[in-house]
């Protein structure tokens, strides 16, 4: 049910993002989804990759601060109201979205949204009860 996401601390200086991408490329790691959150001084790059452990290891070897977090991926119909449906479930259950990012799947015509909730288990339960499909980790790693 859960998806492993890695996050990387980046100072706001030129070339750092390119360096992360290069390290992952050299290790043959594929990026499935990503989001970059930034402040004036630093940024946090969040990635879902096809091999979380290996990505974490190679990045740490290169001196990056890397964290691992559990998030969930939800399949959403790529049509008006798709996102609202999910968020209303969260609202009804008083679950907060810490952050989210979306990507549109190539083939099935659905969108995938990655969510970080304050209460992960409760969120999974609420989504399932509402009949919303939560994607398995493997499905997302291999998109």
């Amino acid at each position: 049910m859960k998806v492993e996401q890695i996050s990387i601390f980046l100072e706001n200086k030129s070339g750092r993002l390119a360096e992360v991408a290069t390290v992952l490329a050299e290790a043959g790691i594929n990026i499935r989804a990503l989001s970059l959150a930034d402040t004036t001084d630093f940024g946090i790059l969040r990635l879902i990759v096809n091999d979380t452990e290996k990505a974490k290891q190679v990045l740490k070897e290169k001196g990056f601060t890397v964290g691992k977090t559990e998030v969930i991926g939800v399949e959403v119909a790529d049509k008006p109201g798709g996102l609202a449906e999910i968020l209303n479930v969260m609202k009804a259950n008083s679950i907060n979205v810490e952050y989210m990012y979306a990507f549109v799947q190539k083939s099935a015509g659905n969108a995938v949204i990655i969510f970080r909730f304050d209460e992960l288990e409760k969120a999974i339960d609420a989504l399932q009860k509402a009949g919303i499909r939560i994607m398995k980790g493997e499905e997302i790693y291999s998109i």
Binding site: Q5, S7, F9, A37, D38, T39, F42, I44, R46, T65, V66, G67, T69, E98, Y99, R116
Partner: peptide, 14 residues
């Protein structure tokens, strides 16, 4: 920023 204090959430670091 060491791994011990790092977070995937901006607000925690801020």
């Amino acid at each position: 920023v060491s791994e011990d204090i790092f977070s995937d959430e901006i607000k925690v670091l801020e």
